[in-house]
Design a protein around this nucleic acid. Structure first.
Lengths: 197, 197
DNA sequence: CCTAGATCGAACCGATCGGTACGATACCAG
DNA sequence: CTGGTATCGTACCGATCGGTTCGATCTAGG
């Protein structure tokens, strides 16, 4: 059986399946750590199919990162929304979600930030920037709801904590509870901003 | 003149010169972004010489990263020591130094953390871990001198801020003053820790 | 039934990769 | 003067890279 997959049946279906399969491989091995041939073999797809869908390895990478950013952003937002109305609870929920993520077996840091560190060119850097911008938007909403005097500045401080604890959780074994520590720090900053306002 | 360089005169001299020249290239282009041949050409050294000194590209990378970690650690420590006795001033000096670094033209994030994001294997990951451990030691000294109830936890929160603001400064153009914001956050945490103690 | 398109596996491309080998040259220690 | 060593430039190695092409195979739509 030379062609076991459904062929013409999936216009965007194949594309989504490729992205889904390629995502963990590129994440675990690094963008330059795995070749196109191996990628194709792993997802049971020929090179020709891959190149018609994505044009190049870079195209695949961009699609993978875009999907990843979208997915994790929605996931974080869901965590916030299920934390009630109190801004402090919502903020805590962000770092609780991060802590859970950091504890997962295959955790290797943020895929977007790692990608930008690997290919420090325009596409990956822009994508990481947009990713952080989305994160900042979520945090700014919380800061605004909390009535901070300068919600933008507070949200950016939280962004630094979110980013930093993810990197530390990945690269510094000596700090096991990075997200938990960052959570306390974020709440302290929130309390200080409220007291100052 | 086929051999213009001093030959037997430099046992560790050549090694140091190679490291010094290779450092900015590997930093700017990424570990996988430049080949051994190009590296050798850039520093006017033959491949044979490079491989006798470092054994492999990985060996060169490790030597470069080790030297870099040592250098930046000493630089940060010097900044702290020239900031007087007051812990708050020393803490501020750390982030002032970071802000200056982030503003330099070729800034591309922390070389150690970038390397660990690229080659997520044992050597680079361990090196990044030791690098963060050195940073943590410096911060813990300050936290201890400040009389914090839990100096280790406070220092780790500062470590998250230091790491986070460096990544954000590199990858998020929407947060220009990341180090300055992190500095304010760190001082707020210090004040809160003192008030709580 | 038949055409158009999607897919497959595999062969193939030039380029580059990390790493080695070689002969020649220059220096230093004895 | 001589022998050991460090370096040079270059050629070379096998492997892998990203990317293209091709004929065979299958399926959906007309």
């Amino acid at each position: 059986m030379p062609v076991p997959k459904g062929s013409t049946l999936d216009p965007g279906r194949t594309r989504a399946a490729i992205i889904e399969t390629a995502t963990p491989i590129l994440y675990e091995r690094g963008l330059d750590g795995v070749g196109v041939a191996e990628l194709c073999a792993a997802m049971g797809v020929s090179k020709e199919t891959l190149y018609r869908h994505f044009g190049s390895k870079e195209g695949l990478i961009e699609a993978v990162l875009e999907a990843r950013s979208e997915r994790v952003t929605q996931w974080l937002r869901a965590a916030v929304e299920s934390a009630g109305e109190e801004p402090a609870d919502q903020l805590g929920a962000v770092f609780d979600a991060l802590a859970q993520w950091h504890g997962e077996p295959g955790f290797r840091g943020c895929a977007l930030l790692n990608a930008a560190a690997q290919h420090h060119g325009a596409p990956e850097l822009d994508m990481a920037g947009r990713h952080l911008e989305r994160r900042l938007g979520l945090l700014a909403e919380i800061a605004t709801r909390a009535g901070a005097a300068d919600p933008g500045a507070l949200a950016r401080q939280w962004l630094v904590l979110v980013t930093g604890c993810t990197v530390v959780a990945d690269q510094h074994p000596g700090t096991p509870g990075a997200a938990r520590l960052a959570r306390e720090a974020a709440l302290t900053l929130l309390a200080a901003a409220r007291a100052g306002a």
